[in-house]
Every structure is written in structure tokens, then in C-alpha cells.
Design a binder for these strands. Structure first.
Lengths: 239, 239
DNA sequence: CGCACTCTTGATGGTCATCAAGACGGGTGG
DNA sequence: CCACCCGTCTTGATGACCATCAAGAGTGCG
């Protein structure tokens, strides 16, 4: 059930049998939620974190004019809101972009585990710091990259993150997003995303069609994006 | 010496005498560094974190074309790179924007403290999660706010963060940045920052001159920015 | 005193937003 | 079963916002 999560952790850290048992023991109720469900509203008190088993979640914030900024995409094996363990409430909402399977982890159990296994405390602390590193990379995109490089950078990031849990290879991956969703990630409009996708496709780099990212030229895509996976802290492991 | 840091922690958490002693005991070598010093280069292995006593630091990343994106500003009392405790190396550089006083905290000592005081582990974990919340707010600026709102949001954020350590009030604060630096924070050019500052000044909201943010109308500034300090997790404490 | 940095303003152009309209496909109800 | 509707994709036309290029003034420092 949480094999994705363990794969993701083991990609960067050693997890021994006791620790694995403790992690499995934290898992609470398993649920299915429909696409479009708001999992967490900004500001509401939280006493549990949510782990994603399958599907796609996002963190987002809205401005009064209705403009939405998505600040991160969560892929299977990711915690959606591990940071709520220390923050108690969130500065952003969490939304299911597709139908999802999730597991809830009560903060109480998480606390018991990180108290009993200090290495797991460091590992989960690392995990939230990795989210922040992804935030910084998106800031570079939003602040300094042009549209084509932004989209290319996003596709490159997701290729790596999904490959870690076996959901992508060098030729592409399923990505159940609309062009409208991509626009909300990258600070653009869906109209401009559409033109940018055409540009990337005509350049022979990548095709996004039928909810699938088809990568024609991974090296070229990474060059356009100036993508360096260092910010994903992959360690020495081969994909 | 680290009174700013304790003030910042106590603004959001209870810290008892034992914990304070432990925190003080972590502090290592104190140093002065000149403006423009690169404190940490992206990717280099780190075995210590750095706390800022006075001055201004930033986290930044450069693209090949020379464009720089600053992803966060550090004010006195902040750790510059507490996250390096779990990450071991950083995905970004750290630069002194002004002359600074800093204290180094060896990771070994930090580890001993968070092992001995699990509540401090949670509190420092919270602290890095707060950095991530600030990142998300900047993403909203970079992705969705127009220039005037971006600059206003930055000035509002710094007003709150500096007020916590006694370096700002409702009328303003010292901010030792050039318009060029502001541009690198907000994903704009210094030319456009200059025009935007004029616009905010002529609207009677704020004047940035002689390295000082003079706030004429804090409520108005917050309205323009759509600033809601919730993302700074202030708790119930009055400023 | 000269040099480097910063600030300021003008002129022009590029990137992306906005508005609009049509095509396409999947799902639903008559 | 087909008409209809809604969400999504696509493309064109126009314009806003911000970048770029350029030049001059002010300031601090060696």
C-alpha cells in the first residue's frame, strides 16, 4: 500500500526493518476522493497529515481576483502536508486534481514515531526541506524563466519525481492535468500554455496530449529548461 | 548575542530555561563578514548552519544568462541555512547583502540538542517549514501579482518579520537594499522597480529612500498587496 | 578628482494577457 | 440514439505590462 512512499524514502535514505514497521504503523484510514475535492482549506486546524497513494494533488493559493497560484504538485508516495505536523494549520489549500487514493496519518502517531526513531525525524524533516527546495526551483521559473523554459522545467521535474516511484521513464509519463492546471502552476494563462506547448512540440522536444507527457528529446528538454536535478537531492542512486 | 533569535522563537513558541541554555550552548564561532561575501556556494558540503545576528542575507540562484532569483531574505535572528542540517548541501547560494555578524552552529551540536530536547526539534522543524511558507507567498507574488503588489507584499512581509525582532514599527524600518536587489527578489528589472516605487510613493503608500522603508499608510499598503500575515504563523501575540 | 555604483527618466519592443470564436470529444438526459 | 452541454483545446487580434537600451544626474569612496 505505501510501497511508493517507502521507495521514495529509500531512494535517498537507508530505512531498516524496525523503521519500516514504525512507518507502516503510522498509517491510518485509507480513503478514495474524487477529482476536484478540496482536501484541506487554508487555515483550518489539522491533527493529521495526508499521504498520497495514487493520483495527483496540488497546493494552491487564490487571490481576490480569482487568480490561482499552484505552489507544488504531489505525486504518489508524497506527503501532501507533512508540514502541517509542525504548522498545525496551512497557509494554502490542498486540492485533488484527479481521483486519488490517500492515507491519513494522525499527528499523534507521527510524533510517537519521530520520538522513538530520531533518524526518521531527520528523514521526515529532510522531506519537508525537499519541498522547500522544489518551491525555490519554481520561484526561479516564475521569476526568471520564459514560458517555454518554465514548462520544460516542470516536465523535467515531474519526469524525475515520477521515475523514482516507477511512474515515468525517459520517454514520458502519464500526467492527468489540463492546460489550465499547467497555467496555474507556471504563472501563465492557459492560452499561452497552449502556444508554448505547440512551440515545444514543433521544436521536437515534448508532446503533451491525451494526459500524457511524451518526451522526444530529454537532453534537449533539459537544456531548454536549464534543468539541473541537484535540487531534488537524488544522492548517488541511478534512476 | 542571540537575543534576536530567542525573541523570534518566543514569538511563536514557549521556550523554557533548560531549552534556552541548550540553544545558547549550540552557538559556535562568531564572525563578521563584509557586504557581498558569498557565505555558501550551491552544492558545497556543509557541516554547520549559520545564524544571522545583524545585517541582511539572501538565498539566491543564478541562471546561465546571468539572471538571478533571490528566493528569501534573512533578517537578524533567522537561521540562514538551518535546512542544511538535513540537506547536507544546498541547492542555492547564500550571500551577504550588507556587512553582517553571524554565528556558526555545528550540525553535531544541533543534533545533540534536538535529540535531547524533542520539543526543540519540532520548533526548529517548524522554522524551516516557515521558510517554505514564505517561499509559497513569494511564488504567489512572482506568478500572479503585478509589480506594485509584489513590492508592496515584500515591504509588508519585512515589516512584520523585522517588527518581531524590534527592528521595525508601523511607520517603517531600515532596509539596506538597492533597487537592483529588490528586482532580483521580485522577478523584475531594476528599471521597473524604480517606476513601481515611484507609483507607490505617489499613491501615498510608501517611500523607499536612503535605505529606509517609510510607510505612510500601512493599511493601504496591505490592501494593494492583498497581504494577509497568516502565512507568517504569528500566533496570538501582539506585535 | 575620478571612478563605480545607484538612481532616474525616456523611447522602443517583446512577452504574455485578454477577448473572442470555433472545433472537438465525452457525458447526460430527453 | 441523438441532441445538447460543458469542459478543453486551438487560433487570431489586440493591448497591457514589463524588458531592454540608452543617457544623464547624484553620491560615496579611494
Amino acid at each position: 500500500m505505501i510501497e511508493n512512499h517507502l521507495a521514495r524514502l529509500r531512494f535517498r535514505h537507508r530505512i531498516d526493518a524496525d523503521e519500516e514497521t514504525a512507518i507502516r504503523g503510522m498509517m491510518g484510514e485509507r480513503r478514495r476522493i474524487a477529482a476536484g475535492t478540496t482536501l484541506v482549506r487554508a487555515g483550518e486546524p489539522l491533527t493529521r497529515s495526508t499521504m498520497l497513494l495514487s493520483g495527483l494533488l496540488c497546493r494552491y493559493r487564490d487571490l481576490r481576483g480569482g487568480e490561482r497560484q499552484i505552489s507544488e504538485l504531489q505525486v504518489p508516495g508524497d506527503f501532501a502536508d507533512l508540514h502541517s505536523y509542525t504548522l498545525k494549520r496551512l497557509d494554502h489549500g490542498i486540492l485533488a486534481l484527479t481521483a486519488c487514493e490517500i492515507v491519513e496519518v494522525p499527528h499523534e502517531r507521527l510524533r510517537a514515531v519521530v520520538r522513538a526513531f530520531p533518524r526518521l525525524a531527520d528523514i521526515y524533516w529532510f522531506s519537508t526541506n525537499l519541498d522547500a527546495a522544489i518551491h525555490r526551483e519554481w520561484m526561479v521559473s516564475l521569476g526568471r524563466r520564459k514560458a517555454a523554459a518554465r514548462v520544460a522545467a516542470l516536465f523535467c521535474e515531474l519526469q524525475v519525481r515520477l521515475a523514482i516511484v516507477g511512474l515515468a521513464d525517459d520517454t514520458g509519463y502519464a500526467l492527468w492535468l489540463s492546460q489550465y492546471d499547467l497555467a496555474e502552476c507556471m504563472g501563465l494563462t492557459s492560452v499561452h500554455i497552449n502556444r508554448t506547448l505547440r512551440e515545444l512540440r514543433e521544436a521536437g522536444l515534448v508532446t503533451f496530449r491525451d494526459r500524457r507527457v511524451q518526451i522526444h528529446d530529454l537532453q534537449g528538454l533539459r537544456r531548454v529548461a536549464e534543468f539541473d536535478p541537484a535540487y531534488l537531492y537524488l544522492g548517488q542512486q541511478p534512476l
